[in-house]
Write a protein that binds this DNA or RNA. Structure first.
Length: 271
DNA sequence: AATCTTTCCTGCCGGC
DNA sequence: TGCCGGCAGGAAAGAT
C-alpha cells in the first residue's frame, strides 16, 4: 500500500530523529527479503553517521556520507521508530540500532521490501537509475508526460503506474487521478492530447498533495513511523467504490481488470 | 478461494 | 531471419 505519500510520510517521521544519528548496529533476523540482504552490510555501516533521510520514488535513502542505505517497503512493509527495545512481533525482520538506543524496526509480512547499500552516487544504483521524474517536481509537466507517452499504445493507467514514466503513483492514486482528469483508464496513452496530459498532471499532483496532507492515506494497514495508522482514510472518488454512485454524476462506478489490478472508473465522467 | 499491496522478469508479438 | 522494444501476465508471501 505504500505509494509516494505514504513513503514521504514515513520519511518525514524519521528524518528529524535520524539526521545526525550514529548507527551502532544493524541486526538482521530475516535476510530473505525481495533480494537477500548483503551479508557484509552490518559490518559495512557500523559506526557511520546518518547525515540525512531523503526519498526517491518509493525508496527511502539514508545518506551515510560514504554511501547510502536504500530501503523499500514493498507492498506490506513498515518502519517504526522505537525509543527503547520492545518485544519482537511476527515479521520484524531487521533493526537499525542507533547510538542513542533508539531503534528503526522493519516489519514486512510479505517480504517484498528490500534493503541495499550503495557507495558513491546513489542515483546510479540499478534500482534508481531508470526512474522517471518526481511527480511533484517542477520538471514534471503535461509536456514532459505527453512526450513520454508518444507512440505508446498501452492503457494510460498502466503507464501512469510505470515508474520509468513518472514515479510514486500506485494503483490507488492512479485510479483517483484519472477520475479527476476525466480520462478513461483504458485510453491508449499515446492518443492523449497535450491539453489532457496537462490536466492529468494537475490531477496527479492534486491527489498526491491531498494524500500527503492526510499523512498518507491507507488501504488497511499503513502505519507511519510512530506506528500510527494514516490519520484518516482518504476520501476516495472511485477506488474501491464498485457499484456505488459517482460523486459527480451519480452514475454507477465500474470496475475492470487492467494488468491484474483493480481499475475503478465512472463511465460517464471518464472518456 | 480470491483478493490486495510493488516491481522485476519472462515470453509473445509486431515492426523493421 | 534476427533483433528490438512494447506489452501482458506471472511470480514473490502472507493476512484477511
Amino acid at each position: 500500500m505504500p505509494e509516494l505519500p505514504e513513503v514521504e510520510t514515513v520519511r518525514r517521521g524519521l528524518a528529524p530523529r535520524l539526521a545526525g544519528a550514529i548507527i551502532r548496529r544493524l541486526e538482521v533476523r530475516e535476510w530473505r527479503l525481495r533480494w537477500p540482504i548483503a551479508a557484509t552490510l552490518p559490518r559495512q555501516i557500523e559506526g557511520l553517521r546518518i547525515q540525512q533521510v531523503s526519498r526517491r520514488a518509493k525508496y527511502l535513502l539514508f545518506d551515510c556520507g560514504e554511501g547510502h542505505l536504500i530501503l523499500h517497503l514493498g507492498m506490506s512493509g513498515s518502519l517504526v521508530l522505537l525509543e527503547s527495545p520492545q518485544p519482537l512481533k511476527k515479521h520484524d525482520h531487521y533493526d537499525l540500532i542507533l547510538d542513542s538506543g533508539a531503534i528503526v524496526r522493519f516489519n514486512d509480512p510479505r517480504r517484498f521490501g528490500s534493503l541495499h547499500w550503495m557507495c558513491g552516487d546513489v542515483d546510479n544504483h540499478v534500482l534508481l537509475r531508470n526512474l522517471g521524474p518526481e511527480p511533484l517536481a517542477e520538471q514534471f509537466s503535461g509536456k514532459v508526460l505527453h512526450q513520454a507517452l508518444r507512440g505508446r499504445s498501452a492503457p494510460i493507467k498502466s503507464l501512469l503506474m510505470d515508474q520509468r514514466i513518472v514515479v510514486g503513483i500506485g494503483n490507488i492514486y492512479a485510479n483517483e487521478a484519472l477520475f479527476l482528469a476525466g480520462i478513461h483508464p483504458r485510453t491508449a496513452a499515446g492518443r492523449l492530447s497535450l491539453a489532457r496530459c496537462d490536466r492529468l498532471v494537475g490531477a496527479v499532483q492534486q491527489v498526491l498533495r491531498l494524500a500527503l496532507q492526510a499523512g498518507g492515506s491507507t488501504l488497511r494497514d499503513f502505519v507511519n513511523s510512530a506506528g500510527e495508522p494514516g490519520y484518516f482514510q482518504m476520501d476516495y472518488r472511485v477506488y474501491g467504490r464498485e457499484d456505488q454512485a459517482c460523486r459527480h454524476c451519480s452514475g454507477k462506478i465500474r470496475v475492470l481488470r487492467l494488468g491484474q489490478r483493480g481499475t475503478f472508473y465512472c463511465p460517464r465522467c471518464q472518456r
